[in-house]
């Protein structure tokens, strides 16, 4: 086992354990729980069976397996950041509504 595989394996185990714990505490919905299982599981699978990435990338027309992994990861990261951005904007609006409601109730 290479040092990278040990590292990736640890990341996978910790990620999946955390997802399980949050799911048990009902802090994750079914959909997000499955999503994180796939992401963290994928990290482990790619580390231990790297040839899999090439088998997927070739039919898609991407030269090397690792390129496909990098492309997909960046796309996913952008998407998650975008979601967080939208959620933040909504939180800002909600906070303002709360602050306004408090100001008006006191009067």
């Amino acid at each position: 086992m290479t040092p990278f595989q040990i590292f990736a394996g640890l990341v996978m185990v910790i990620g999946i354990l955390r997802a399980f714990m949050m799911y048990k505490e009902r802090k994750l919905t079914n959909g997000w729980f499955v999503f994180w299982l796939i992401i963290w599981g994928g990290v482990g699978v790619l580390a231990f069976i790297p040839s899999i990435s090439y088998r997927i990338s070739a039919p898609l027309g991407v030269q090397s397996g690792i390129s496909l992994v990098v492309y997909l990861s960046i796309t996913l990261l952008f998407y998650l950041v975008f979601r967080i951005f939208l959620r933040l904007e909504k939180l800002q609006t909600d906070i303002t509504r709360l602050v306004r409601e408090i100001a008006l109730r006191k009067k």
Binding site: I95, T96, V99, R100, I102, A103, L104, K106, K107
Partner: peptide, 22 residues
């Protein structure tokens, strides 16, 4: 004046809207 208070700073637009609603 009728004074209203935002417990935290939310910006001029937010404050005007509160005053207008009042």
């Amino acid at each position: 004046a009728h004074a209203l208070r935002h417990v935290i700073n939310r910006g001029q637009g937010a404050a005007l809207k509160t005053g207008i609603d009042f």
